[in-house]
Design a binder for these strands. Sequence first.
DNA 1: GCGACAG
DNA 2: ATCTTGTCGC
Length: 227
Amino acid sequence: MPHVIAELAAERLWPDDPAEARALQDRLAPRVRVEPLDPDGVRLVAGLDVSYTESAVVAAAVVLDARTLEVVETATERAEPAFPYVPGLFAFRELPPLLAALGRLASEPDVYVCDGFGLAHPRRFGLACHLGVLLDRPVLGAAKTAFVGEAAPPAPERGSVTELRADGEVVGRCLRVQDGVKPVYVSVGHRVDLDAACELVLRASPRYRICEPVRRADRLSRDVLGR
DNA sequence: GCGACAG
DNA sequence: ATCTTGTCGC
């Protein structure tokens, strides 16, 4: 058993099956904290992503200077898939390799950006929340498609937003980061609020739909996977 | 019961 | 996520 999973299991933070996984999410969800975070105080932003094959998974963490968006440091982890992909249980597939990669970073990012959701989740505990609670660090989620809830399309200008609502509550925002380009979905993971999360994603997306930290992590994980 | 369903 | 060619556009 991989070290990261053994450590989580020792803390009763690793499920044996989907039913246990859902129960664990319900147990950890109350630990999520939504709080203000000053975007101007963020110096280092880490982008996270994972690429797959049938038999291998590669996680990548890329730390960028939040102001210049230059790469400061990178780390990767190659592993065997430890959990199947089940919508809503995404974190159990990506968390182990991500935690291992993050453990190799020398720097301490001020905020982490996940390719997925935080509170915009059936049990309000997506990957960004899960990672945030385990690290007790600011984490936010930026996804390419919606998973739960509905959002009206934002105005065509960069910076426009609409609320992403599910079960009558605001669980995130649909954010247009480029003029006339399909929007992305931002949600809080931990120790950040929606305003800061959207501002950080906007600042980290000077050119493309996918913010630079995640784009870099996506490319790196793909390269290491070897294709 | 049926369809939808982050990556 | 991944499987996949050409093609339109800056």
